[in-house]
Amino acid sequence: MRTDTLVAFLLIGLSAVFYKLSMDLTDGGDIFPKLLSIMTAGLSLVLLIMDIRKARAENGSEKESGGPKTLRPYVTFVLAVLYVAAVIIIGFFTSTVVFMVVMMLYLGVRKISNYLLAVAFVAAFYFLLFDKFLHVPLPRGLLF
């Protein structure tokens, strides 16, 4: 399915959910969300019609558009998700060091000195700024 068509359907669905849930709201809390649900659905419908017309003009095939044909952004995103999950379990500093090393390996950094310098600088900077200066209670987790 073409991307804009998919987006249009998803947003019409989202608008329907918001509209349905708004029906249970009272004291005027329902009016604005209902209005926005209708507006979002209406705009999505316009997008859908425009995309169908475009598809006809292009003979059904979607022209090369959107994201690049590489998995790198998605792998990076998965690594970021794992990193956040690890922050809760093994603590901020340990997970940061592990994440940075894994990510640099994945992105093809070769020099050992780059690893050492980057990790040491980042860990020291965060420790001094957030832990010591701003007193942010960073998650400690099982390790550090």
Partner: peptide, 20 residues
């Protein structure tokens, strides 16, 4: 600066920034 170094540094910044 190599993107391979810059990218992970920024990801950690986004995480600590939104946590803080």
């Amino acid at each position: 600066i190599n993107i391979g170094i810059l990218a992970p540094v920024i990801v950690t910044l986004t995480v600590i920034g939104s946590y803080a």
